[in-house]
Every structure is written in C-alpha cells, then in structure tokens.
C-alpha cells in the first residue's frame, strides 16, 4: 500500500514540474497586487495590514477569504515565505504571520512587469490615435 502512495506522489511531482516549466511565473492580477503590497509593507506584511493597505491604496474592498487563499497559493508556489510573529491582545493570543518576498517571487514579479512593459512597447503609436475616421 505504502509503495503505491509514494509512486503516486512522485507522479504528482513530475506533473507539477512540467506545469511549472510550461507556464513560467504565472501571476494573477490579484496575486500581483498582493505581492506588490507585501513588498510595500516590507517588514509589516501580515493578513490585516495587507488587507487594509490594499483597501486604502487601491480603494477596493478585499475579503479575508480571497486574500488568505491568494497568500496560501503564493506561499505554495514559493513566491512568498512566512514567519510567525508576535501576538497581541486583539488577536486573543493568536500569532501574526508575516510574509516576505522570496528571490523566486522577485523574479516572478519582474517577469510579469517585463512582459507587461514589452506589451506596452509593442503597441504601435497609431493605436493611441483614438479618433476614428
């Protein structure tokens, strides 16, 4: 039985790597926002602060659910790393979880930004001529 499970996991790993190579540095829009905000907050990036930072800077409301899922996904992908921090009275003893951008995360962000910029540059000047004849 055990051997079977191991084999199974191995398969998943293989597949995972394949996916990874194919879709290089995949970052969703919201994920990118979260990554950027984590960078902005630098040492102070944890759940509540990220949420309020996005809300105040981008003037959009963020649900805890969406944020936490994004954080977990980013951490699973290896773009973010976390450490356990202090706890406060308001948190009823629960520790804060601080996030930090990893090297891989930085690469992914730069890749995303670069690809955006390439696209921007590729737009011919005429396209901005919005007055249609």
């Amino acid at each position: 039985m055990k051997r079977f499970i191991v084999w199974h996991n191995f398969l998943i790993l293989q597949l995972g790597i394949n996916c990874f190579v194919m879709k290089k540095y995949q970052l969703g829009e919201f994920e990118e926002v979260v990554m950027l905000t984590v960078g902005v907050l630098y040492d102070e990036a944890y759940g509540v602060s990220i949420k309020s930072e996005i809300e105040s800077r981008l003037e959009r409301s963020v649900s805890v659910g969406a944020l936490q899922t994004a954080l977990k996904r980013l951490e699973d992908k290896g773009y973010l790393k976390s450490r356990e921090g202090e706890s406060t009275y308001e948190r009823v003893g629960r520790p804060k979880k601080y996030f930090q951008i990893t090297a891989l995360g930085k690469e992914a962000m730069q890749y995303t930004r670069q690809s955006r910029e390439d696209l921007w540059k590729a737009i011919p000047e005429v396209a901005w001529n919005l007055k249609m004849s």
């Binding site: 759940g47 509540v48 805890v64 308001e90 948190r91 629960r94 520790p95």
Partner: peptide, 16 residues
C-alpha cells in the same frame, strides 16, 4: 496550518 494566523487576523479585524 493556517488556523492560528487566520483566526488571529479575524479576531483583529473584528476588534477593529
């Protein structure tokens, strides 16, 4: 794995 930190966030937000 996520319980403690998210719960903490929720409590903090609630308090706020």
């Amino acid at each position: 794995d996520l319980l403690a930190s998210i719960e903490g966030d929720l409590f903090e937000l609630y308090h706020e």
